[in-house]
Amino acid sequence: MTEMEVWNNKRELGNLSEDERKIFDQLGLNESSRRKFLKGISATSLSVWAATYFPPEVFASAAAALPDNPIKLVNEVKVNLRINESVKSLNLDSRTTLLDALRERLALTGTKKGCDHGQCGACTVLVDGKRKLSCLTLAASCEGKEITTIEGLAENGELHAIQKAFLEHDGFQCGYCTPGQICSSVALLEEAKRGEASYVTDDLREITKDLTLSEEEIRERMSGNICRCGAYNNIVQAFKEVHSSDDEMPTWEFATPEQMENAKSS
């Protein structure tokens, strides 16, 4: 039997191995919901949110892809998008996200699609100067708004200070999260100037403008941009250089055996 036939067999008859049965029991799926689940899962992939909670074995063989037919526009909307200071007029399917409009229709592929569900920050762009997620923004809702993407940050051929600092400090490895990290950093500079607070701000009642952010503050405020390469230290450093002219590299050392003991006993 081909892999697909084995899978179909399982779907139709609920023919599961002992191990598979155990997994389904742990998931709380009884006979009828098992069958329903197996039918459903073959057509779709697991939701991004649910995937972190359910064991991967359950989905290992559920690989059937959706048909790849070209799709025509449904519920067409006409939108004027003002992107990086030029206006683009587009006819779009009402379902089109700002992210897909940028990448698929305007060839502005600097903005990246990581998760498409608001969980990673790779798609961060500036909308009227505020950082937002283009994957959860409908293009139709952007009429009349000013959108800035990574392609629009340089001025007169000169990179934005944050872009330069990312280069200088190696604020990336693969670079996939980088456009999002940079757009997010650019917005954060302004948020600090306006005196906005974060969850780790000591006293929310004390309101001052032109904040100098501590490293803890920067990390909390940049937590919406996830970097699989773990370039966080260098990203923080790049941000600091522009934000507070602090370009010292962080110093660190291994904990001594004594410190390890103290940490355990406290």
């Binding site: 998931l27 709380g28 799926l29 009884n30 919901s33 329903k36 689940f37 039918k39 459903g40 899962i41 779709t44 697991l46 939701s47 949110w49 649910a50 972190t52 909670y53 359910f54």
Partner: peptide, 18 residues
Amino acid sequence: PYFFEASMPCNKREPGSG
């Protein structure tokens, strides 16, 4: 997570499905 995954049983998403 059951609510988020359309192939799972969930009374909130699909009343009566368990």
